[in-house]
Simulated assay, not measured.
Amino acid sequence: MNSARYCGRDFSVTELRSIKRLIADNPESSRAALSKLVCDMFSWRRPDGRLKDMSCRVAMLRMKNDGLIHLPPPRNGNNNGKCYLRRTPQAQPDPVPFITPAHSLTNLCLQPVSDRNQSHLWNEYIDRYHYLGYQPLPGAQMRYFVRNGNRILALMGFGSAAWKTAPRDQFIGWTKEQRKRQLHLLINNARFLILPWVRSKNLASKILAMATRRVADDWQKRYNYRPVMAETFVEIPRFSGTCYKAANWICLGETKGRGKLDRLHKARLPKKTIWIYPLVRNYRKLLCE
C-alpha cells in the first residue's frame, strides 16, 4: 500500500506512521484533540483557514476500522454516533396528524441549527424518524429545522460532497485535479426528513426550493466561501426522487452500489439515483477553474 484515501485526502505510508506516533505520544488526548493535532501536523484546513478537524475525526475512525491505527475509547460513550441514545419529550411523536397542503403554510421557514441544544434535538429527530438513523455529518455542514410557526414539520442537512461519482464528474466535466481542487464548492443534501405525522401535499418540493435559495448564503456566512452546486443520492427502489424532480433537480443516473467507503470494489449496497441542483448559472466555469 502506497497510500490510503480518507475524506478526500490521500495519506501516505509515512503520514500514517506519523499519525500512529502522534497518538502514542499523546496517550491522554481525546479523539477530538488528536484530530486537531493531526490537522495541524499536515496543515489540513478548510478554504476559510479553519482546521478540518471533523473530517479528520471521521478519517481517523475509518483508519481505525481498517486496522491502520489504534484510537483511545470515545469519551462521550456513544460509539461515535452509531447509537444515539438521547430521547426527550420534545421529539416525541405528535399524536395529532398535521394535514395541511403546502400552499396554505404561510409561516413556513428554515431555521438553521445554531446551538448545542438545537443540535441535539436535530440529531434525535433524525435518529428516531429517518430510515438511516443518526450519523454525524463530517466537515462543513448546514442543518435546518423546517418550521411552520412554532411547529417542526421537517429537517434537512447539507454536508460534504461525495469524493468521486462518475456520472456527476462527467456532467461537470471535471479532471481529477479540478475535482480535488474544487470539490468543496459542491455540497451534499445528506438528510431530508418530513416527520411521519405530517401530511402536506407538495411540502417536500417546496422545502427543497426554499433550501436551494438560501443554503449558499448561509454557507457563505458560516464558512466564508460559497458553494455553487448541490447533490443528493436517493435510494432505489425505496424512493423515486419525485420531490427532487418537482423541485427541478437534475437526475444524472445511478450509483454502482459500492458506497463511498468501498476501496476494494467488493461492497454490495443499495443503488441510488444521483441528483444535482446548480446554485448559480456559471457553476461549470467555477467548478472547472
Rank of each mutant, 00 (worst) to 15 (best):
R268D: 15
N80L: 10
R21M: 13
I194Q: 02
M210T: 04
L286I: 12
S240A: 15
W197Q: 11
I126D: 04
G257S: 05
I152S: 10
W174C: 03
Y283G: 08
Y129M: 00
C109M: 14
K256W: 07
L16I: 15
A24Q: 13
R238L: 11
K206A: 10
T165E: 12
A161N: 11
A32W: 03
R147D: 02
G149I: 08
P95M: 12
L183M: 12
Y131T: 07
L287K: 04
I23W: 07
R268K: 15
W163M: 08
I207F: 14
A154V: 06
N65L: 07
I276P: 02
E15Y: 01
T232G: 12
N248K: 15
L71E: 04
I207K: 13
R226G: 00
V146H: 06
P95G: 15
R87N: 11
S3D: 11
R21H: 05
K206M: 11
L195P: 12
P89M: 05
C251Y: 02
G8D: 00
A154H: 05
V38C: 08
A102T: 03
L185W: 01
G241N: 04
R281N: 15
A211L: 14
N2S: 09
N150R: 09
Y144F: 13
R46L: 09
K64G: 01
I187H: 00
V234S: 07
A246M: 11
L208K: 12
F145L: 04
Q118W: 02
L264R: 15
S55F: 06
A267T: 11
Y277V: 05
R57L: 14
V96D: 05
P136A: 12
F192H: 03
A166M: 07
V58G: 02
G49Q: 10
D115Y: 14
A24M: 10
A216V: 00
S3I: 13
M60V: 07
W219E: 00
K206S: 14
I187P: 00
R17I: 06
R143H: 09
P101K: 05
T273K: 13
C109I: 08
L121E: 13
P167L: 01
N107T: 12
G257V: 11
I187C: 00
N79K: 13
F158N: 01
H120L: 15
T232F: 04
Y129G: 10
R128F: 06
A140M: 07
R214N: 02
L68A: 06
N202Y: 13
S240Q: 10
N2I: 02
Q220D: 08
L186F: 01
P97M: 10
D40Y: 07
E235T: 15
R168Q: 05
N150I: 10
L155F: 13
N148L: 04
R181I: 02
D40C: 05
K64A: 12
A246S: 15
L186Y: 00
K206Y: 08
R62C: 10
A230G: 07
H184D: 06
W219N: 00
N248M: 14
H265R: 10
E124L: 12
C7K: 14
G259D: 13
E15R: 06
Y84M: 04
T212H: 07
N117K: 09
N248R: 15
M1S: 09
W249N: 12
I207H: 04
P270K: 09
F171L: 08
D169I: 02
R75C: 05
V215F: 00
F11S: 06
P278K: 12
G133L: 05
K271Q: 11
E177H: 09
D53E: 07
S160I: 07
